[in-house]
Design a protein around this nucleic acid. Structure first.
Length: 302
DNA sequence: AATGGTCAAGTCAGC
DNA sequence: GCTGACTTGACCATT
């Protein structure tokens, strides 16, 4: 079991997702942003390794406008050494990596333009992980997509698009249950048809489920992972008590987290903490998991 | 220098 | 039909 947080660190004083407006696009700005973002990525990775946080989600904003036609710059070539350096560090410290393209990435859209742009975006994500020479346990997580008035047909469209995906993308994809359209049961069904591993999101499951309790859900999702795809990934967040639907909490509820660890004891997986205060909660979770036999310790003997 | 409207992209619920 | 949520900060035009 490894514990981590997504994309940005709020205490290190660097922003790893610097971007700029499309209107002000220039090669100069792009190079400056990517240089900054890769530099900050290294800072975050070092911090994480120092603090026993061995699961990390790399931001999709690492390379601004990466899949946009405006960007014809060879960022892979220009920053090859930096990507290799980050990859070497990740491999050396055995850090688990995920990426999560945002909601515009919808491969099952009936609009071929949307689907095509989504695949280009996925290729960008695969390029990042490939440039770091990471194996296929580094995953790109997406949702099934839209319903378009016909769930079954839309699921089938996801599956047929998946089968035609470029292999670089195909080998890294993971599908995550969402909170209003496609729940765990749908993702498991997609997994049976395609072999895609399922990332279980606890908060989404709270909003949309078929009655599965947490243990059942974690068990079922875990079975979709292999040695090829790695340790199962779980997105964990608890519901804000008097918050709006689906909102992430400010900071981790350690009581709830302890209960979650207890409930899922028979299964091992990596936990991504989707919580507003990012590394602060992850640090607390690492402390809480310290005595858990599943938890991987890397701190120096002392 | 401070501010606040706005930012590449999609989909759906709710009005 | 249109707006807001999803999630969020920060860019940058305007003052």
């Amino acid at each position: 079991m490894k514990i981590g947080y997504p994309c940005i660190n709020r205490t290190l004083g660097c922003t790893g997702d610097r971007t700029f407006r499309l209107k002000s696009y220039s090669e100069e700005r792009l190079v400056a942003a990517v240089a900054n973002n890769l530099d900050c990525l290294m800072t975050m990775l070092r911090f994480n390794a120092d603090h026993n946080m061995l699961f990390f989600r790399i931001t999709s904003d690492l390379v601004p406008f990466a899949s946009h036609p405006v960007n014809r710059f060879d960022w892979k070539g220009r920053f090859g050494a930096e990507f290799e350096e980050a990859g070497a560090f990740i491999r050396e410290h055995d850090i688990r990596i995920s990426m999560h393209p945002d909601q515009f990435t919808v491969i099952n859209s009936p609009d071929p333009g949307v689907s095509k742009r989504s695949i280009r975006e996925l290729l960008y994500h695969a390029d990042v992980l490939d440039s770091m020479a990471l194996d296929t346990t580094a995953r790109i997580q997406i949702h099934v997509g839209g319903v378009y008035g016909d769930r079954d047909q839309s699921i089938r469209r996801f599956e047929s698009v998946f089968r035609e995906l470029p292999v670089q993308v195909k080998r890294r994809l993971a599908v995550e249950n969402d909170d209003r359209l496609y729940g765990l049961r749908d993702c498991l069904s997609v997994s049976r048809q395609t072999g895609i591993p399922v990332i279980f999101d606890t908060l989404h499951h709270g909003a949309l489920n078929s009655g599965e309790d947490i243990e059942t859900a974690v068990e079922a999702a875990s079975r979709t992972w292999t040695t090829e795809t790695g340790m199962p990934m779980v997105d964990y967040s608890s519901q804000r008590v008097e918050g709006r639907r689906g909102r992430h909490v400010e900071s981790i509820d350690l009581e709830d987290f302890a209960l979650f660890l207890e409930t899922t004891k028979p299964y091992d997986f990596d936990i991504m903490l989707e919580i507003k205060d990012k590394e602060e909660s992850a640090l607390k979770a690492v402390q809480a998991a310290r005595r858990d036999p599943r938890f991987i310790h890397t701190e120096q003997h002392s």
